[in-house]
Write a protein that binds this DNA or RNA. Sequence first.
DNA 1: GTTGTAAGTGTCATTGAAACACTAACAGGT
DNA 2: ACCTGTTAGTGTTTCAATGACACTTACAAC
Lengths: 221, 221
Amino acid sequence: MHCYPYPHPAVTVDIVIFTIRDGQLKLLLIRRAGEPYRGKWALPGGFVEMDEDLEQAARRELEEETGVSGVYLEQLYTFGKPGRDPRERVITITYYALIPSEKIRLRAASDAEAVGWFGMDELPQLAFDHDEIFAMAYQRLAAKLSYSTIAFQFLGEEFTLSELQSVYEIIQREPIDKRNFRKWVLALEQIEETGGERREGAHRPAKLYRVIQPGTVAIIK
Amino acid sequence: MHCYPYPHPAVTVDIVIFTIRDGQLKLLLIRRAGEPYRGKWALPGGFVEMDEDLEQAARRELEEETGVSGVYLEQLYTFGKPGRDPRERVITITYYALIPSEKIRLRAASDAEAVGWFGMDELPQLAFDHDEIFAMAYQRLAAKLSYSTIAFQFLGEEFTLSELQSVYEIIQREPIDKRNFRKWVLALEQIEETGGERREGAHRPAKLYRVIQPGTVAIIK
DNA sequence: GTTGTAAGTGTCATTGAAACACTAACAGGT
DNA sequence: ACCTGTTAGTGTTTCAATGACACTTACAAC
């Protein structure tokens, strides 16, 4: 047992894990095995260990649930309303992660629990206040599209401009003019041609691009 | 004593309290009475009670330190690196508050501790990682100026356009063209004339304005 | 070689941002 | 009464960025 002169809340991290697959923005959820909310879907997360940083905790959970490491992760918000967990006072620091579609499939499930990717239009009811957390994450993501290069984080090392454009279109749910988009994104000077092409289908091959400073998200404009 | 099967960190809130006075952006600090960092200046803050929401805890601390309530308060970030407090693992949810210059002076100090307002250029060394917290708060505040109406929160119910302009100039540390500023701020349609004037000095009196929807911060453009 | 498909490319019109200087209203002193 | 100093208040022009818009290119499959 661990004892303190004053009561301490429990502290967890929860992660909103986004990816883009099948032309849709998708969210990783796990089905809860125990009470409360048994059988409900929830954001992956868990308790913060006493010797790890908060972001470390989030990366550890992320790795356990998806097998993915080294991806973009950003602190979102901290939720701590009394009663949000019926067992005890739990304060959760939430993060959101963006995973390149290539990287998934490495490991689908961590332990026995069910894990699933859900499109935005097919989200199940979520446990706790996780719907609120998700809503804030989506809002933040959509907002950041317009003033940062965060969208690049959904793509692998090499990508085409069409793929990049489609990331923007999927997240903000509206079509973009192809010429204006290319003009705009190239003017940012954040990506460059690799020299290679991708040939995939009965049409002209697309030039491949890479991010000039991978791993960083620039604030633009 | 309060005991748990697993170790729990302590959870606090710390608040970066900004105001504008004497043509300067100022920060409220308290001098620490006990160890660690005895005698050093620190952000006001304290432990989260088990039955209060995080924002409530921040408002309570704010009220205790400054006597001010009902002001703009926004969650900033959560810091929790192991070792940031030498006594035990402490996770702190930080907020920042903007106080209209009129409202201060209500209560200068809460208990016996020393309290002081410090200009940006005369900040003392801070305890813990509070310099990092402050830096993030200032950055967030400066960023929000350009895409929200957050600056209005520094002003009282009635204000002149010159006062509003000076808030922007002080925070972003550069002069603004008067005509362009007025054109821009009026186009937002977030403020309106009260009809009154303020006569203060040997010059033309200034028209007074008020915020149309007080208490809300609009996202603009 | 014909067909279907996505890649790739430039111009013009509109809108928003930045630069810029003078008049108006008052208080205080002569 | 009037002169002086000080801040409030006001439009126009220039430049840059954004948004609308259609055709040609390269390939695979038949």
